[in-house]
Amino acid sequence: MQGLTAHFGGITWAFVLDLFTDYGLFLVSALGLYVLMSAGQVSLGHAGMVGIASYSAAVLAVKFHVPFWLSLPLTGCIGMVAGMVYCYLLGWRLSGFYLAIGTFAFGEMMINIWLTSDYLGGAIGFSGIPLLARWPVLLIVLPPIFYALWRIEHSRIGLAFRAIRDNETVAGSMGINVARTKLMAWMIGGFITGLGGCLHAHRVTVITPTEFGIYTSVTMLLAILMGGLRTFWGTVLGAAVIYFGPWLTTTSEPRDRLMFYAALIVILMILRPQGLLASRAAR
């Protein structure tokens, strides 16, 4: 009991706000992945895409002194182009398991490129990015994203996404242009991820290559798997579970927290294999 008060007692408003801001920023990138996954484009290296956007934002801000409000949409567009490249190289050629591995390998390759690049700070990381992504930014960025996702979900393109996720061949025979739909998914997902990467860079101020590795990718993936693929609100909820769940444990030892978290993953996979918000038939 005493531990409990100690755990929650030290929590201040500023801390809660910080935590929510971190959650919101994480959510933006995770929603980018949601768009991909909703079209069956399983990515196991999504953090790599976030990293591309983060490094772009960092270069724009530090080397070219581009103002934040210009750099944000610009990074979104860079993310979109990255999405197109991913789609061309991987999305159109691979599917399912191989796509997952391909995206993972691509992410690891990017990490190793950043590690070897002196221009980008190498292993030490890229520092000096101004701290600009505070909570008000989220209030401006998140609602339009939600609105856009809601519109997509209720439109033909959302239906096409679901159709190619279910069965590419059948979707193709129903008159859906599979290649174009995939490209759309990668572009939309890439744009949102681009925004997420830019916000991330302006939040942490120092970015290092290894933070965009498989653990981050899997964390985002988990948010989506927990939420299920029926609606993007699932991801909003899943990301909250991922982000706030570990804080509910009454231990201050970070390793214990990670163990708790790992156990949670296994248990969730067993008990709700289809995600928290999805019906059983949805996956």
Binding site: V42, E253, R255
Partner: peptide
């Protein structure tokens, strides 16, 4: 046999083991 979930669950198991041994 749900390969996607197994991938995630075994990764969870790995995280558990790694952090357990670290502890």
């Amino acid at each position: 046999g749900n390969w996607w979930n197994i991938k995630v669950a075994t990764l969870g198991a790995a995280m558990f083991l790694e952090n357990f041994v670290t502890r």
